[in-house]
Amino acid sequence: METIDAALVGFGAIGAYAHCKALEELDEFKFAAICDLTPARLTIAQDSYPNIVPYANYEALLSDGSVGLVVLATPSAHHERQAIQAAEAGKHIVVEKPMCLSADGATRMIDAARANNVCLTVFHNRRLDADYRLVKQTIEAGLIGEPIVIESRTHECGYIGYAKEYVNWRLSKSAGGGLVYDWGPHIIDQTLQLMGTMPSSLYAILMSKMYYEETDDYFKIVLRFPNGVVAQLESTLFARFKLPRWYVLGTDGAIWSEWDGAKIRTKVAGFDSEIHTDFPKDRNTRFHDNANEFYRSVHAAITSGTDPPVRPQQIRDVIRVIEAAIESSESGQVVSF
C-alpha cells in the first residue's frame, strides 16, 4: 500500500479535533507536517505531534516535495487562494467546508485541480452521519412513500465556540464566518443528496441576534424542488428547546430522528407500524470513525483513480444555494435557480 505524506494547514479547533487524529491513526498516511501562522498554535502542534515538521509559512510547506496531500483547515475566505496554490504546486487537496465563499471561486478551484491533475475534495463528513444515512435509506426503500416535506436542523444553545468572548474569524463576515457558512454547507449538501437535484427556488432568513453582530447566528432556508418537495433547513445557537434533527413527512409514513436515534412510522400491508432505531456508539466516536472513512476514500482516489469521497462539482452547487440564501435574506424575495 502506498503511503501518502500529508500536511495540515491551520491547527485550529477542527484541524486538531478531526483531521489530525485521522491522519495520525491511518496507515494510509504519514502525518508529516503542520503549518500555522500563529506561533503559540504551532508550538502546541509540535508538542502534540512531535514527529511532524512545523511550518510558519504556507509557501515553504508547498515547496516540500515529500508532501503529497495538503489539508486546508484555515478560515473559509482563504480556501480558494490556498487550494489553487496547492494545485499549482502539484499537491492533492482536502478542503474544510465551506469549500469557498462563491460558486465562481469553486469553479476556479476545480479548474486548477483539473489543470494540474490533482485530486480535490471537500470534508463533507456529515454525509456519513448515522442520522442522515438512516433518512436516506428509509426514503430510498420507500418506507414512507414519496417524501412531501423534509425538515433538517441543528439546534444549539450558547455553543462555546461561537460566544462573543471567544473572538475569532467566525465572527467576521469577510472571513466567511456565521452559521450559514458553518452548518449550512452540511445540511444543504445532505438535502441536495437526498433530492438528487438543485431546488427550483428558495426563500431564506438570516439573523444576528445573540452571539454575532455582523454574521448570522440563526438561519432558515426553505427550498422548493421541481417535484414539489419542500425542504426547511434551520440552524441556531439560541435554542433552549430543541426540535428533532430530522422530521420528514411522506405519503405513507414519517421519520423523526435525533442525533442518537430515530423512529419511523410506516404503513406495512395496510397497517401502521413504528420502527425504533438507536445509533451505535456515542456521537464523538461516530464523528472520528466517519473522518477515518472519509480519508480512506481520499487515499483510494489518489492512488487508484477512484472518485473522491465528495465531488467538488457537487459542493459548488451547495455554495450556489448559500449565495442565493444570502441574496434572499437581504432582498426579502424568493430567489429562483
Rank of each mutant, 00 (worst) to 15 (best):
E2P: 04
I4D: 02
V9I: 14
G10M: 08
F11W: 15
I14E: 12
I14C: 10
A16F: 09
I34E: 07
I34M: 14
C35G: 11
C35H: 11
D36C: 14
L37F: 15
L37K: 15
L37V: 15
P39F: 15
A40F: 13
L42D: 14
L42W: 15
D47E: 12
D47A: 12
P50A: 10
N51G: 06
N51C: 10
V53A: 02
V53R: 12
P54G: 10
N57M: 11
N57H: 13
E59A: 10
S63G: 11
G65W: 03
V67T: 01
L72M: 12
H79R: 12
H79S: 13
E80A: 14
E88N: 03
E88A: 06
E88L: 01
H92W: 04
I93R: 00
I93S: 04
M99C: 12
M99H: 14
A103N: 04
A103K: 05
A103G: 08
A115D: 09
T121A: 09
F123V: 08
H124N: 15
R127P: 06
D131Y: 11
K136Y: 06
K136N: 12
I139W: 04
I144V: 06
G145T: 00
I148E: 09
E151L: 11
T154C: 11
H155F: 13
E156F: 08
C157H: 05
G158S: 00
G158E: 04
Y159W: 12
Y159L: 11
Y162G: 07
S174F: 03
A175H: 12
G176T: 13
V180L: 14
Y181V: 13
D182V: 14
G184P: 08
P185T: 15
I187M: 14
L192P: 00
Q193I: 12
Q193Y: 13
S200Q: 13
S200K: 11
L202D: 02
L202N: 04
Y203A: 03
M210D: 01
M210W: 06
Y211W: 05
E213V: 05
Y218Q: 02
F219L: 07
F219W: 09
I221M: 13
R224E: 12
R224M: 02
A231Q: 04
Q232C: 09
L237R: 06
F238S: 00
K242S: 07
L249G: 04
T251E: 04
T251I: 05
E258Q: 10
D260E: 14
I264M: 04
T266E: 07
K267A: 08
V268G: 06
V268N: 08
I275V: 10
K281L: 11
D282I: 03
N284W: 11
N284K: 13
E293W: 05
H299S: 02
A300T: 06
S304M: 12
T306F: 07
P309V: 02
P312Y: 01
Q313F: 15
Q313M: 15
Q313Y: 15
R320I: 01
V321A: 10
A325G: 11
S328L: 06
V334Q: 07
F337A: 08
